[in-house]
Computed example of a mutant assay.
Amino acid sequence: MMDALSVVCQLRDLASEPQNREVIVQDQGCLPGLVLFLDHKDPEVLLATLQTLRYLAELSPNIPNMKNELGMMVSLENLMAREGLSVDITALAQEVYEILSAPPKLSTCTAETERRKKSQFFINSSNRKAKSVTLHIQGLDNTALRGLCEEALLTVKGVISFTFQMASKRCTVRIRSDLPTESLASAIAATKVLSAQQVVKNDEGEEVLIPLNPSGVKVQQNSALPDYLPEEEESPDREVDRAISRTTAKEDASGSWLNAAASFLSKTFYW
């Protein structure tokens, strides 16, 4: 049974796959439906909707269509000014708004290749034989320091993807299951201005910070950075330390589900 949250979560998981982003934006029902979800009362729906839009905006040709979608920019402005929302929702709304508002840049092959190497990596949860680790990064105060952290993580062999939550100074990193978490802390500590602690949940379900000792940990580095780091083939193992992980993405991005979602949106929100 479809509802608003399940539909937007499915769209978010589809949008996490780069090859699906153009199809979602070009669909006549999905983008208008996402705009309407920006006015939803449920914070979970709002956050999932903004995450979906952030994924879609990673594909630069999508940006003009998203910006020109009726109600998009106004709804984002309303969210930024709306009281009572979490800092994650407000910050993400502002980030999406700024991306869509930015003047178009001249695109060249060199610039696009460099952007894909250095820009924010989103978690592709179809990566297997992997684990997700959430880090609290002390000193993550601005975009320049985020770029420094990105560069550090990209040098670690075994890092698959990562995404930042700047408002809470968090970074969720998807890594190979055999990569020690201390390797991430060591690479981040090498910046000399940043340090990392792991975010886990205790037996009461509360988040706690676990110190990581980066000293003496040898970091195996990538000698050459591909556009996207390689993926593995086996099923993921359950995290024994209960590190916070992300939901599993839908592997099949066929038009059948997308059509069903668009139909749901059309029936639920008549315009």
Rank of each mutant, 00 (worst) to 15 (best):
A130K: 03
E151I: 00
M66C: 01
L265C: 15
S223F: 00
H136R: 11
T113H: 10
R128H: 13
T268N: 11
F269D: 10
E151Y: 01
S177I: 12
A91H: 15
P226D: 01
Y97D: 05
P214Y: 01
Y270W: 08
V199H: 00
S101P: 06
K218S: 03
A130E: 13
S186E: 04
N124S: 05
L92I: 09
V96R: 05
M66E: 02
N213I: 01
P18E: 10
A185N: 05
Q198N: 00
N142Y: 05
E182Y: 06
E44S: 12
F269K: 08
E151T: 00
L59R: 13
V35I: 10
T143M: 03
G158N: 01
S16F: 07
A130I: 09
T191G: 02
P226G: 01
L31H: 06
P104E: 15
R128T: 11
T155V: 00
R116N: 12
E233C: 06
C9G: 03
K118G: 04
T113I: 13
A243I: 03
L184M: 02
E206W: 00
E151L: 00
L265M: 15
Q165H: 15
K105F: 07
Q10T: 14
S183F: 01
N142V: 02
T52W: 05
E69G: 06
R54S: 12
S266T: 08
T134N: 08
P230N: 09
S101R: 15
T108F: 14
Q198C: 00
L53A: 05
A185G: 12
V74F: 06
L53S: 02
N20T: 06
A249P: 10
S75K: 10
E234D: 10
V159I: 07
T143S: 03
